[in-house]
Amino acid sequence: MTDAVAASGLGKAFGARQVLQDVSFGVSPGDVVGVLGKNGAGKTTLLEIMLGYTPPTSGGIRVFGHESLEMPGDIKSRIGFVPQQDELLDQLTVRDQLRVIASFYARWDFALIDRLCTEWGVDVNARIKGMSVGERQKLSILLAFGHRPELLILDEPVASLDPIARRQFLEQLLAISADGQRAIVFSSHIVSDIERLANRIWILKDGRLDWQGDLDSLKESIVRLHIRGTGTELPQFRIPGVINVRRDGAFATAVARDWTPEAQRALEKSASVQIEVETLGLEEIFLELHR
């Protein structure tokens, strides 16, 4: 299967400020990639480079086989984008705004958008000027869905949506990705949404991809360990991939990032300790990686 996106060694600097450094990844059809990172970690810049909005200062990126900066129109029309800040035209009604965007594309799924307008409670007669932030966000999402993109890029798409609207949005994203032909890359601070939807996770930290891989593997490899010795004092030992460790007499608590059952057995034997493994949810993992 050819990659929808392939990037290697991406770097981006604004003047002296290095925003991205040595970022490499691939996105395959069927993937739902959740992008996590603190404010200012480089998420938006990364997504904008994928869209060809801004050139990387180093490295290369290809989208559907084309350099992202030189994508021809027919390649661009296979991409959908929901920006963090909407680009709606205040003076238009929802219906007119939908028409304007639909006119840019050779194919537009009017039936899908009509159905979603009804399901999501978007009033096509409303004037955009008078709409709430949440309503505007719903409309921005609809505008990115109508041409049935093969690559959907979403930058904080749901920050202003209520839990019910967010769930409807997630269900629609799942329906879109269910045929295995489309790829979705979305950044969000709502970790529980990413935890439901994503099969792959990118954790951006200080402009670098600190962790990337399957969500399943992430949960299996980053764990909290509760270590107990047999005496009153814990022996000295080294935990592979340790992020932090706190010793307290005969006990220790540690977080490790490359944990395996083999590592556990080896450490238990060599250090004569007992280890209890506590698995962590995605939010905890994210916090631990930023301690």
Partner: peptide
């Protein structure tokens, strides 16, 4: 896989796995 993914709103790949 599809039914389960849609019913629970979870990624289908983890179910296929």
């Amino acid at each position: 896989v599809r039914d389960l993914a849609l019913r629970h709103t979870i990624n289908p790949m983890t179910i296929s796995r």
